[in-house]
Amino acid sequence: MANLSFLMSLLALSLSLVFAVDPSNLQDFCVANSIDQGSSTCKDPKLVEANDFYYSGLHISGNTSNSVGSKVTPVFASQLPGLNTLGISVARVDIAAWGINPPHTHPRATEIFTVLEGTVEVGFISSNPENRHFRKVLQKGDVFVFPIGLIHYQRNVGYGKVVAIAAHNSQNPGVITIGNAIFGSTHQIANEVLARAFQLDRNTINYLQSKF
Rank of each mutant, 00 (worst) to 15 (best):
L83F: 06
N3F: 08
V21A: 14
F29P: 00
T114I: 08
Q79H: 11
N51L: 07
H59L: 15
G87C: 05
V48Y: 06
K211Y: 03
K211F: 06
D94N: 12
D201C: 05
S16Q: 04
V21Q: 15
I182L: 11
P103L: 07
Q188M: 13
N63K: 05
I88Q: 06
L150P: 05
L208Y: 09
L11P: 01
L150A: 15
F146N: 04
N156E: 02
E130Y: 10
S70Y: 01
N203S: 10
S170P: 02
A166P: 00
F198I: 04
A164H: 01
G118K: 11
A96L: 01
A91P: 01
H187A: 13
D28N: 09
K71T: 12
L26C: 10
Q139R: 13
I165L: 08
I88P: 04
A91C: 04
L194D: 12
S127R: 05
S67T: 10
S61H: 07
L11K: 06
A190R: 09
F29T: 11
S170C: 05
V137T: 08
S9G: 12
L26W: 02
V163T: 10
T204P: 02
L116P: 07
A32G: 12
V137Y: 12
R196F: 14
T73G: 06
V48M: 14
I95E: 02
V18D: 13
D44P: 01
